[in-house]
Every structure is written in C-alpha cells, then in structure tokens.
Design a protein around this nucleic acid. Structure first.
Lengths: 195, 195
DNA sequence: ACAGATAATGAACAGTGTTCATTTTAATGA
DNA sequence: TCATTAAAATGAACACTGTTCATTATCTGT
C-alpha cells in the first residue's frame, strides 16, 4: 500500500503514542515491543519507524507523555490544597508512581543521554520540576532564585530515591512500611534547616 | 561434546560471572547479551543456561557481585577514616557509582521482584545496608535498633536519589554542579534533626 | 488524464533468549 | 581392563526483537 488517508501525520503520531503508552503500562520497558504497538494500531513496523525514527524515539515520546500526565496529577492535587502543600506534593508524587508503576519506572530505566532529548520534550518534562521549585519557594516564603532551585531539585532527588525503593518493592522487603512518611520527614527536615 | 574437565561447576560459574560482569561494564544492561558472554568464555549458550537458569539469573548474580564490590569499596574507604565518617561514606558511595556507571545502573534497571532473589544473594546485598546502618548509629551515638535502621535506610534512599540523577546526567543537564554536595547536605540536616 | 511526490509496506537481515534431544565425555563398577 | 552409567556440553530449532530500504500503492497538483 502507500499513502493512506486514514490518518494524517499528526493523528498517526498521536495514535501510535497512545497505543505505545498503553503497552508500556501493561508490559514495562523490558517487554515493550514496537512491533506490538504497530500491530495494535493496524500499521506495520515500517510506519512506526517512519514516524518515530526508532524504538528509542518512541519510548522517549512515551516517557515525555508520562511526565506530562504526572505534572497534571500534581497540579490537580495542589489546586485544592489550602495548607501543607508540601505534604500534598509528596503524596501526589508517590501516588502517581504507585498508580502507574511500569510507566513511571520506564522513565528511569530508559537511560539515554539528556542532550538526546529534543528541546520541546525537555520543556514538557521540565514542567514537573517547575511545579516543585514553585512550591518549595512558597514553603520558604522566598522568590524562586537559583539557590531555591538547587534546593528544590535536591528535594526532588530525595523523594525520588524513596519512591524508587518503594516502587521496586525493595524497601518493603526490608520490613519497612512507611516509605512515603520517611520521604516527607526528610523533606521537612531540610526545609526547616533552610528557613 | 559432553562433560569437559576444563572447569568444574564452580569454576565455570565464576568464569561466566566474571565475563558477564565485564560485559555489563562495557555495554550496560540494555545491550547485555548472554550469547556474547558464552562466546567470550568459549562455551555455548546452552551451558550458560545450564549454570544460571536464564539471563535474569545471570544478571542477578552479576548485580549481587556488584553489590559486594561496592560494599568492599565503602569498607576500604572507611577503614582509614578518623573523623566525619559520614562524609567519607557518601563520597565513597558516589565514587563507586561514578567509577562503575553501567554496572551500578544495571542494579536498578534490572527490575525483579525482591522475593525472587535467593537468600544467599540477599545476604550479600544486605552487607551494604549493614555498613550504613552501623555508621549512622555511630554518628548518632546510638546502638543500631529498628528506629536507627529505618532512618539509615531513608538516608540511603536520599543519597541514592541524588546519585541516580548524577549518573544519568540529568542533574548536570539542569545546570547543577555539586550533586554530591547536595546529598551530603541533606544527610547532615537529617542527622542533625535526629540528634 | 497524467505525472510526480509521498507514505505505507513488508521482506530481509542480524541479532536476542529459551528449549531440549543428542552427543560426548568422565566416573563408576564388575 | 572394559562395559556401563551418569552427567555435562552442545547446537539446531523456534519465536521473537529492531532496523533498513526497495517496492508499491495512493494522493495531489497540473
């Protein structure tokens, strides 16, 4: 066959991306298959390669979409939060990872050089960090400058570490129950020290 | 062919493990190949499967060996440390990850249910945590009880999060320079709060 | 109606992990 | 010493993977 008018280029992009994200949620990165995605959308592997270049390109796009969903989830939770927004933030952070363990894990299992991420996708991914920088600044009654940004990113790393252990199950295997509580406690200690 | 006496079962196990670890350091988990390991030790894929069951078994064994190396590195650095052993610990933790980025990353990229890890390997891996619990207890002038253990594991998560961002390069891509310094600062804050 | 551009195809290739009947060898016992 | 037995290494077969690219079908503009 050749040029079909079933879908435009952007429609096709969206179609493959959606099916790819769904597959990622089902199988995780290690069992992800571009061929399976092609099968699901009724196109062939060649088409997937035409649109995304290669599997890494597709996975990158899926992971960027995951970041966007994640940021949406954080903002939705923060929207109705009057007090202790930091606790809400940490909880929403964990909740997303727990609700989407395979898609969340895929972000960090797919190791790729940061400069290989297209600028547009980098901007989408950066939204998550932006939210956190804003909230950390607010919690400290400061304007978001470089120092606040560095602290905020460090707190992201802190929470990420706890979240990674929680999702992998290694923390629970050690008999620990309240990973999220520990993460929040560490964040509070560092915020108190920064005040 | 059949039963060769070139190597005993334990020799063969060690041989494949060593070659596998070397390959992991060269390629990382995503490009790791059991067939390539077999080729390098002069046996066939069948033999690798006989000894390690499957690829996951081999990767698990390699990762356990990585944990052992890592624990050795921490103890070596701590052996000559008189004061500020926490700073030495954090630095040694980062140094190992930086010096062995692909092997270190493979530990966390290879997602497997914790209860799938044989007890013997679990013990080896636990040595790392044991060292940290001991040092955290010492830093707090306490005996290592459950509460200290929980705090120590939380601090491991904190440092892990920073280390993961450092090794992936995502922190540097955000213009941040001193990831390790941030990790140590967070640890100090939490230790101060626990005192 | 035709020509040119474009998009989808799918066969081909080189890999991967896994299985398991077969073969070869070493150890054992008569 | 020699036949038997048990064990280990093999490697072909299978079903998958990602990637490439010449071919072909289709749309679009003239």
């Amino acid at each position: 066959m050749g040029r079909r008018s079933d879908h435009s280029r952007v429609e096709l992009h969206a179609l493959i991306l959606a099916a790819g994200a769904a597959l990622m949620a089902e199988t995780g990165l290690s069992d992800f298959s571009a061929r399976e995605v092609a099968k699901r959308v009724g196109y062939t592997i060649g088409t997937v390669h035409n649109v995304f270049g290669n599997v890494d390109g597709l996975v990158m796009a899926i992971n960027t979409a995951t970041f966007a969903l994640w940021a949406d989830a954080l903002e939705a939770r923060l929207a109705g939060a009057e007090q202790d927004r930091i606790a809400v933030l940490v909880d929403a952070y964990f909740a997303f990872a727990r609700d989407n363990p395979l898609r969340w894990s895929a972000i960090y299992e797919h190791r790729i050089a940061p400069d290989a991420i297209p600028e547009a996708q980098g901007a989408v991914r950066g939204r998550l960090t932006g939210i956190i920088v804003r909230e950390v600044a607010a919690a400290l009654d400061r304007t978001p400058d470089a120092a606040v940004g560095t602290l905020a990113r460090s707190l992201v790393a802190t929470v990420h570490g706890h979240c990674a252990f929680a999702v992998s199950g290694s923390w629970e295997a050690m008999g620990e129950r309240d990973v999220e509580g520990a993460a929040l406690a560490r964040v509070r200690e560092s915020l108190a020290a920064a005040r």
